[in-house]
Design a protein around this nucleic acid. Sequence first.
DNA 1: TTGTTCTCACCTAGGTGATAATCT
DNA 2: AGATTATCACCTAGGTGAGAACAA
Lengths: 259, 259
Amino acid sequence: DIGTEMIITKAGRRMFPAMRVKVLGLNPHRQYYIAMDIVPVENKRYRYVYHSSKWMVAGNADSPVPPRVYLHPDLLASGDTWMRQVISFDKLKLTNNELEDQGHIILHSMHKYQPRVHVIRKDYSSELSPTKPIPTGEGVVTFSFPETVFTTVTAYQNQQITRLKIDRNPFAKGFRDSGRNRWDPSSHNGPLILAFERTGLEAIMESCAFWRAPVRSVTFENFTAMQKQPGGSTGSSPTASSTGTPSPSGSTHLLSPSC
Amino acid sequence: DIGTEMIITKAGRRMFPAMRVKVLGLNPHRQYYIAMDIVPVENKRYRYVYHSSKWMVAGNADSPVPPRVYLHPDLLASGDTWMRQVISFDKLKLTNNELEDQGHIILHSMHKYQPRVHVIRKDYSSELSPTKPIPTGEGVVTFSFPETVFTTVTAYQNQQITRLKIDRNPFAKGFRDSGRNRWDPSSHNGPLILAFERTGLEAIMESCAFWRAPVRSVTFENFTAMQKQPGGSTGSSPTASSTGTPSPSGSTHLLSPSC
DNA sequence: TTGTTCTCACCTAGGTGATAATCT
DNA sequence: AGATTATCACCTAGGTGAGAACAA
């Protein structure tokens, strides 16, 4: 599976499901920012072929838009504060309007994107701003979960995606078939797990332990695969990159191929 | 007039009208917090005498509750950022529940209170917390506008207050007499003016100039007096206190008796 | 009697996909 | 033909005072 679809509009549209993460390994007494950005994957434009239910390449990507960073609204908080909570990015909005000025993330429609979460220790946040790139350095760690890749659309292409969104998003309740298609919110997936400051295999192992047992991994892949194996929790291989270890722009250094 | 009434509930109730301020005289490049607290005025408990439409003393104040501080949700921002905007405290909630743990401000019913706004330069914010008192020092200035004193109630006592709240608060539109009692929101009052870091008569003069001409002063006094002189803008005498100049607790040093 | 709490209808504010109109 | 936009009914979420019920 190659991920779900996200609607983008002129005014800005939330992602559903939203990215939700839990962070491990922070220093409880230090201050951190947590930010999210969304980078292109594969330099292509796509179209959806209805009769084969597949996305096909339809040329090269449009010229890139000014990249934006979404700072988590809790802004600066202690490691202790961050680690106690599930950190949700549900207020983040996507737009296709390149002149948007409310800080929404600007994307091209019919392209594939990868959300990334950045944990930024305060002393490295010289000039954190929604329009500036994420700083690089020892105090910054970037996480990418490959299963959270999605395709941008202005109208859903795959009807299974539409049905899943309607069944799970509370704001779309008005479109549910009454009676059936009921979605039990108690079976919601848990947050993704990020491990900061123990950026070796050890940290990833701990992440895996966490998300295998009490916390199920929420991923967009699960989201789309859910109907095939309801209640099932598929594996997830987070990709972490300390920008202290240089890696090609847009890609990330793989620490652990699988758990 | 002795101010308006504010409802307090167990779950927490917003103030209406909310405190709205504009700050002058900050260093554009330094970082500041802006906070609000609410202190008792006169150490009495009151009851409302309906036939004379007056508040009468009904004994001494109840034992004080743990004081709380409301940090403006924008938290830390540059002087430049703060000065560009009208700073609204409309999310602040009042409660009479002493066990409340959502950070609402705890008050006694049937008492009189004075809201205060604090501008706190970052280097003096050693441990800013909703449950700790405002720090004191050179980098902290406190503003009190006497006309924003109010009385706490669990149900409105004065029917004129009730009518004004219904006419002006958008959330109470359902109780308006259709047709009449219409309130033109374009005639809303402007924010109160605070002047930081030029804490002499000069600063207050500038404040006055500001609020006399383009910006009308929003005060609770105006709010209650509005029906008598609709569109009128009465004077306002802000009281500023730099905690570097010690003054009796609960009261503030008067810089300018009138403009 | 007086003050408080609870529930309610009625709002504001804003997040959904469907649909029709429009654009390219 | 395919993609985008604007508008809409239908939701969630939560802020109002009224009024009944309750408490001291």
